[in-house]
């Protein structure tokens, strides 16, 4: 029940830092909300602003640099490690990203992203470095159906893995709960049989 996702062609925002944990993506003090909306404005809050002050953005952080924009976030290895807070995925989605590219993702983050219609694309270290080396106006294309990511200016491309069930969900914009509810009778049978 999220927006279907098939192909994204866009410029990208690079954050070439490894082990970006969920406390950086969305600091704990913003987890007090009881709804899912509005987390985008606090994405990377402490890296984005000086002293938590929205009128004082840190000039060297890519999200604050006008030349970087787009629906694709490209980050260093082991992205999303740390806590299970889904708020991290919500803030990335709410900010407007549809794809996150890294050479490695933490497990829980990967699931959370997929459950919110954000596609994690795992590429090789070499390909990631190639992207980081590109100019700010370069574009990437992520084609979910063909499971490829390409650099438009050079034509270089790499394929990525995604399990076919998740892929179908993303392409159609339906989620795991829709599926599980549809098999509830089987779940009840399982409960009865195991006693």
């Amino acid at each position: 029940m999220s927006k279907p996702l098939s192909t994204v062609t866009s410029r990208f925002i690079p954050i070439p830092i490894e082990n970006i944990d969920t406390d950086q993506i969305i600091p704990a003090r913003f987890l007090k909300a009881t709804t899912k909306e509005g987390f985008g404005k606090n994405l990377f809050r402490d890296w984005r602003y000086e002293n938590d002050d929205e009128t004082n953005p840190k000039a060297d952080f890519p999200l604050n640099q006008a030349q970087y924009r787009g629906e694709i976030l490209v980050a260093g290895k082991n992205f999303g490690c740390g806590s299970s807070r889904e708020h991290a995925a919500w803030s990335i989605q709410d900010y407007g990203f549809r794809v996150v590219v890294s050479s490695f993702f933490a497990d829980i983050f990967k699931n959370n992203a997929l459950n919110n219609g954000v596609l994690p694309v795992q590429v090789s270290d070499g390909f990631l470095q190639k992207i980081f080396a590109l100019g700010a106006d370069s574009e990437l294309t992520v084609d979910l159906a063909r499971q490829t990511i390409s650099i438009i200016s050079t034509g270089e491309s790499e394929s990525f893995d995604i399990n076919s069930y998740k892929k179908t969900c993303l392409l159609n914009g339906y989620d795991d709960i829709d599926f599980l509810l549809s098999i509830k009778p089987e779940i009840e049978t399982f409960e009865t049989e195991r006693g």
Partner: peptide
């Protein structure tokens, strides 16, 4: 294991996870 909020909803709805 730890799960995200969508998965919390999933388990509440069906007592199962994918």
């Amino acid at each position: 294991f730890g799960i995200g909020t969508s998965e919390v909803e999933m388990v509440m709805a069906t007592q199962c996870l994918l």
